[in-house]
Structures are given as structure tokens and as C-alpha cells.
């Protein structure tokens, strides 16, 4: 549990950080909260030559509203999100998901940006980012760009971030009135990671029917995904028990589920439907 040798630089500006990344290319890794990368390094499964610690860069940790969006700095900790009274009011899915990550120590150190960029197939944030239609801002020495959450998660531990890019900010459209949200997960008892995690954000019309729904699911496959078939079934539907169950049954349509020692692919798919049903029900209350 002792990492291999590495160099460490803690730049104080984002410009410096991206310059370091483009300079060191494949050999460098960005260190955010360190709650995924450091364990992997201690097992020597990850052996980066250089850690670029972005924890000393000022102005990467914030939650603000701007341009109709919630903007969250990449270095904002899970705990900061969990404890934000304003987020509880305008986008409760975020604090709800944050509060279910790991344990208190992890939430105090781990960051939303670090988790998203790591793209663990069982992490909680990817489901939330998908359900909230987040835009992830990536900065590199060539400039800045936005990546839709739906395009961001590519495969196991693999994102659309290019070599030399740093995830700097998460932008989420401020949910409309009559939006209901929920994040529910079955946690693996050892790791606390999601065996299945379902994030739901839905908007009801004046009559109480579902106007639109977004459902993000993590833990089931090699990456988190939007459950398009569930969303389609919910759109325009009345949110009664039967409709919800029928929609939730599509939670893993077209998904190649993974199994492990704790939960087989078959069980994971079943759990996804159960948790989708429960999360949609919770969101529609």
C-alpha cells in the first residue's frame, strides 16, 4: 500500500496546471480530492510519473447561480454540495446524491470534478450529472469547451476528456418549477459504491402528468448511462404506480450489464428496475 515514486507539483493557476499537463502528456495525472487516484496508486495499479495537484488553485471550489445555470467548481467537495441549503431548494438531487457517497471522510475530501473525471463505473455523480443534463467544462492550453454529460462517459474509467484537459466546472440548468428529483442507490456493503444507483429528475405539467424525465443509472454497466427507454415511457404519462413500474422496467434496455462477486449481471438489471421505480416514485411525490 505504498505508491511508486512520483513527482508532485501544485500549481496555483489553472493555466499553469494545463501547461504542465500538455508538457508531460501521458505521464501526468491530475490530483483532485485524491479519493480514487491515491488508493489506486497505493496498490500500484496507477503509477503516474507526475501528480498535478489542482487543490491549491484558487477559485475551483464554489456553488453559484449564473445564466440560468447552477455552476459548481470542479474542486467542490461532496460535503459542500451535500450541505448546501440553496441546492436543497433548487436542485435537491445534488445534495441527495452527495450525501450517499462513501463516508464522512470521503465526502469531506472527495470532489465532484475528481469523481466525474475518474468515471468509476459505480460512482454516484455520473448518474446525477446525466439526469441533470449537466454540461462539463474542460480547460486545456488550447482553450475551453463544454461536453454534455451524455457524451462525457465513454467506458470504464474513460471519459471524453482529451489529453491535457482538466474538468473545471459542472454546469446544470436550474430545474424548472414543478421539478421532482431523487437519487436512490443500493450500496455495496464493503465499498459503499453503487451496485445500482438511479438519479431521476422529472418535470410535471400543471395537471400533474410527467412532462419530461431524465434518468441516469450508474453501477450496472461499464459506464453510467441515460435510461432513454424509461424517459420515453414517462414522457406524457400520468405518474401512477402502474405507469411508473412499467416505465422503470425498461431501466436496462439495450444495456450490457456487468456482474461481479457481489451481484450478478442479472441481479443488477433487476435492481436497476426496482431502484428506477423507487426513484421515479420518490421524484414524483
Amino acid at each position: 500500500m505504498i505508491p511508486a515514486q512520483f513527482d508532485y507539483i501544485a500549481p496555483t493557476t489553472l493555466d499553469e496546471a494545463v501547461a504542465l499537463l500538455s508538457q508531460h502528456a501521458d505521464d501526468a495525472k491530475v490530483l483532485a480530492g485524491g479519493h480514487s487516484l491515491i488508493p489506486a496508486m497505493k496498490l500500484r495499479l496507477a503509477q503516474p510519473q507526475l501528480l498535478v495537484d489542482i487543490g491549491r488553485i484558487k477559485g475551483l471550489s464554489y456553488i453559484r447561480e449564473e445564466g440560468g445555470q447552477i455552476r459548481i467548481g470542479a474542486m467542490t467537495t461532496h460535503y459542500q454540495i451535500e450541505s448546501s441549503a440553496r441546492l436543497r431548494e433548487i436542485c435537491p438531487l445534488l445534495p441527495e446524491a452527495a450525501g450517499q457517497i462513501g463516508d464522512v471522510q470521503v465526502r469531506n475530501k472527495g470532489t465532484i470534478g475528481g469523481s466525474l473525471a475518474h468515471s468509476d463505473p459505480a460512482a454516484d455523480w455520473p448518474a446525477a450529472a446525466l439526469a441533470l443534463d449537466a454540461e462539463l467544462r474542460a480547460v486545456s492550453s488550447k482553450g475551453e469547451r463544454g461536453i454534455k454529460a451524455a457524451d462525457f462517459f465513454v467506458d470504464l474509467f474513460t471519459t471524453a476528456l482529451e489529453q491535457g484537459e482538466i474538468l473545471s466546472e459542472i454546469r446544470i440548468p436550474i430545474p424548472k418549477a414543478r421539478t421532482g428529483q431523487a437519487y436512490l442507490k443500493a450500496a455495496q456493503p464493503a465499498s459503499g459504491f453503487a451496485v445500482v444507483g438511479v438519479a431521476v429528475s422529472l418535470v410535471r405539467d400543471a395537471a400533474g402528468k410527467c412532462e419530461a424525465a431524465a434518468v441516469g443509472i450508474t453501477g450496472v454497466a461499464s459506464k453510467a448511462y441515460r435510461a432513454a427507454a424509461v424517459e420515453k415511457a414517462l414522457a406524457g404519462a400520468s405518474l401512477d404506480e402502474k405507469m411508473i413500474a412499467a416505465a422503470a422496467a425498461h431501466a436496462t434496455d439495450g444495456i450490457d450489464a456487468n456482474g461481479d462477486l457481489y451481484a450478478s449481471a442479472q441481479y443488477r438489471k433487476h435492481l436497476a428496475a426496482v431502484y428506477a421505480r423507487r426513484a421515479i416514485t420518490a421524484a414524483s411525490r
Binding site: 467506458d155 470504464l156 455495496q188 461499464s222 456487468n258 461481479d260 462477486l261 457481489y262
Partner: peptide
């Protein structure tokens, strides 16, 4: 990889 990666092995093999 066997001792610590069991939850990832299927996904990694597929990938």
C-alpha cells in the same frame, strides 16, 4: 489485479 479488481474485471475484459 485479481485481488483488488474483481468488480472491474468483466468491464475491463469487455472493453
Amino acid at each position: 489485479i485479481a485481488g483488488v479488481g474483481q468488480r472491474m474485471i468483466q468491464g475491463a475484459a469487455k472493453m
